[in-house]
Design a protein around this nucleic acid. Sequence first.
RNA 1: GGCGCGGUAGCUCAGUUGGUUAGAGCGAUCGACUCAUAAUCGAUAGGUCGGGAGUUCAAGUCUCCCCCACGCCA
Length: 574
Amino acid sequence: MSSQAKRHLITSAIPYINGIKHLGNLVGSQLPADLFARYQRARGAEVLFLCATDEHGTPAELAAAKTGKPVAEYCADMWEVQAKIAEGFGLSFDHFGRSSSPQNHALTQHFAQRLAEEGLIEEIVTEQVYSKADGRFLPDRYVEGTCPNCGFDSARGDQCDNCTKQLDPTDLIDARSTISGSTDLEVRETRHLFLKQSKMRDTLDNWINQKADWPVLTTSIAKKWLHDGDGLQDRGITRDLDWGVPVMRADGPWPGMEGKVFYVWFDAPIEYIACAGEWVEAGKGSDWERWWRTDKGADDVRYTQFMGKDNVPFHTLSFPATIMGSNEPWKLVDYIKSFNYLNYDGGQFSTSRGRGVFMDQALEILPADYWRWWLLSNCPESSDAEFTWDGFQGGVNKDLADVLGNFISRVTKFCNSKFEPTIPAGGAWGDREEALIQELESRLRAYEAHMEAMEVRKSAAELRAMWAAGNEYLQDVAPWSTFKTDPDQAAAQIRLALNLIRIYAVLSAPFIPTAAARVCADMNTLDMAWPTDIRTALTALPEGHGFNVPDVLFAKITDDQVAEWSERFAGTRD
RNA sequence: GGCGCGGUAGCUCAGUUGGUUAGAGCGAUCGACUCAUAAUCGAUAGGUCGGGAGUUCAAGUCUCCCCCACGCCA
């Protein structure tokens, strides 16, 4: 890749503060983003990898109320929880921020003012359901009642789940608040700010049309929203809530907007930028504008976003509309990598039903690398993917335990028993070694190209093939046989194999960082240099270099465990 | 209902701008080896590429219709 960028800004879709995410959420954004960030760092690029919690909105308020905590405290606590779990999965964020940060408040208000100055904000009076008992306006989906169409008694204000008819809250018969159950509701007028996305439509359309190299999933969703029906619609960017960024201009109050906050979809993506400011405030960096302002050094940055398909409209349209509409030199995204959904054993993961494996539970039962490997090597790239316990057990046991783990085990133990726990001297390479080098060189180039292109599954397959090549080599040259007649030749063979272990650790680290670090520790080396030239890299550990014979690197998942876990995580199915 | 993504070996999936006998991993069967986490390596079997029509010298790969699954509908 001659055009390889040297500076990478990478963001993962920011998870909502309300609760712990499941494996489908993880594999749809944070995990592949981490893979890419780790790979780029390993290749020597300068990387700023950012993520945060998305904290505003009604669901957070309600979740906090349920726990009896003030919403700010609830969010602070849940941020801790999510940050700790992210750390457990080895997600190497340079900073894990919060959309409720002062930086985001300031930037959100700044963008709103800029958009207003550019004529892209319109004030519109709308009608909203107000609950006197709750003392608040209710979002459509928090109003329930009987569907006027089919008679279903739990139809929501936005749609009836029974007959799928789209509704207006005022259509409902015997409407009630889902928060308190109160039927003391009334329709009140309220004034809100709308972002005039429709004025940006042609600009966005032209921009998307230039992105021929983006995943079809990304562009098809964007184009659908641009061209479907009447085209891109203006969107309300404010709400009648307490918890959020107050609707103000950067330089003062916004008359008529007192007591209102910006809607979560407006402030959440701005947190990508604000997070860089938090990164500086946390003392981890010194100049965030160098990453985000093309007039201040960010013109050579390549910015890549990772997200699930449900987030694509915001990232292809709404957020770019905010950025472009500001008419300021902010860095626009260069590439949007989007993912489909991961299903759980024939159905969807379900938070409400406790169906499927959630991030905290996953870490309780197995090391992060097991999940990282399987999720990434089976990630929902071209279509929805399926998690099954059989598939997970088979994949992990075969790839990690048998192919990689056992290779390390057989090589180190053989060396230890026939020689010493030291890289043995003697012998020389021949044709078989040359053939192996050729194969690895060729596979490594393919691996690099796939990683650069964020072809996650293909990258994993290529990496695995490199692991397998080591086993093929060993089987061919059979050092256990050559040792009997020509110990020097066996020494040369096992010396190569021991060096291969270090190379595998380096190449595999983006996928399985913890195991890779452990292997390097066992091999007694700090040399994590990318093996650009395989031939040279195969001599990195010199003759006489001592190592520790490692314990089992990946214990296998047993049938009993699978039986127990499939029962435990099945949830309450109907 | 509209739109979107798919429907390729038992399973999970690759298949570039249409071009010789449709590929991989797992699983299965057989064999080799015995250093290793009963691991590894090799070989074999297995597909009328959802169905139908069409364009073309040539279609999994383009066009139209239909069927099925999943998702979205602000």
